[in-house]
């Protein structure tokens, strides 16, 4: 039997008994995220021109953009928060917020097992006269709005 006085951990353990815990009481005490932490992607529907670059470059294929229907959608739970889409968007429509992703309930899983976290924006097409002609892209039909 080793001598307990020679066990170097014993004084440490005794000190720990009376000291403050190293952990936080989580739901009651939340450490704010550091500035610059990578959280969720935020989208500004007003500036986006549906160029689809973000969708093409996203390594997780989390973004779907439809130029014809003028919708932009992201699966927040598929996104890996790499920040590539923010870098490539020339319109600065995307930004990375520090907020962590929302927590979802099991009841939010779709009937076919679709994951929650789908966010979608739709911008009605401007009147046909303001659409600049883009070679090869048919002018979008007037839509019914979001």
């Amino acid at each position: 039997m080793p001598n307990p006085l020679k066990l170097p951990m014993i004084p440490r353990a005794l000190r720990n008994l009376v000291s403050k815990p190293a952990t936080r009481r989580y739901p009651f005490e939340i450490r704010p995220r550091f500035a610059g932490a990578r959280g969720t992607i935020e989208f500004d529907v007003e500036t986006c021109n549906y160029c689809m670059l973000c969708a093409r470059r996203c390594p997780a294929a989390a973004i779907t953009v439809s130029r014809e229907e003028r919708t932009w959608a992201i699966e927040q739970l598929t996104c890996i928060a790499c920040g590539v889409c923010v870098d490539v968007c020339s319109k600065h429509s995307l930004s990375m917020s520090v907020n962590s992703r929302a927590v979802h309930l099991r009841s939010e899983v779709g009937p076919q097992g679709q994951r929650p976290g789908h966010e979608e924006w739709h911008k009605p097409a401007p009147a046909a006269t303001d659409i600049p002609a883009v070679a090869g892209v048919p002018a979008p039909a007037a839509s019914q709005g979001a």
Binding site: R38, I80, C82
Partner: peptide
Amino acid sequence: KTTGGRIIHS
């Protein structure tokens, strides 16, 4: 603080 992620730094 420095990279924005705890485990995956990107």
